[in-house]
Design a protein around this nucleic acid. Sequence first.
DNA 1: CCCCAGGTAGGCT
DNA 2: AGCCTACATGGG
Length: 267
Amino acid sequence: MEKIVVPKSQTFDVTATLECGQVFRFAPTEEGFKLYALNHTADIKLGEQVEILCDDAEFFKRYFDFDTDYDFIQRQVQDNALVSQAVEFGKGIHILRQDPTETVFSFIISQNNHIPRIKGIIERLCDGLGEDMGGYRAFPTVEALAAAGEDYFASIGAGYRAAYLDRVAKAMLDEDMSEWAKLDTPSLRQKLMGLYGVGRKVADCILLFGFNRFDVFPVDTWIKKAFEAEYPNVPADKMSVLLTQKYGKYSGFVQQWLFYFKREKKV
DNA sequence: CCCCAGGTAGGCT
DNA sequence: AGCCTACATGGG
């Protein structure tokens, strides 16, 4: 067991980072959180300082993105209006560096779905198809997902997304994500949207959370509500383009702070 | 009972 | 190109 100790900081809040909707495989414990990522796990203890007890400290140091200067970004996007409010509310959020394949399947499941249900479906997916890591299950490999079949995905409650998961799993057998990672953002988005069941919004979530492209602005129902006054009758995909033009390389951060703010505060 | 959720594909104009 | 609707499931 390895340990990461994170000093108290204005710009890292584990609770907000986990609960802001970018990640689904975690659960509260008496002392903090139990977290699962790909084929790793961490026990997070909250206190004067955050302690991350894990199986691989290098993996989680990268995963939590401790090297990005969030304080700088937060200062760059201040607008003395909605964004400033959202940053004040969610200023401890880091954008996690998640596994690309895990985000592909996780965000296909997320579409038109509630977060508690998304968590449940992914948990059953891992329990049923993931490798036994001794005490927990890894996120399933593409091979395991491709072998499962549409009926299996339906049986764990995936609903109409079962067909998407099955077809994408089989298509991904022939793909190398490390090659996809070399593409620029528009080309990579095009690749992702070529997957059955992946539209602009899911593609942008995968770009942001799985490939850490910050020049994307996923527009879901909450973001759409947040901007419907500013952009009346603008479809989600078009709104995403406009917001990306507005926030540039900080789009992903602004989006995540706003999503968390709108969803938690219900304003 | 209805409405909603980190939307998308397919069909229509 | 844009607009419309069905889609599985469960929580509020």
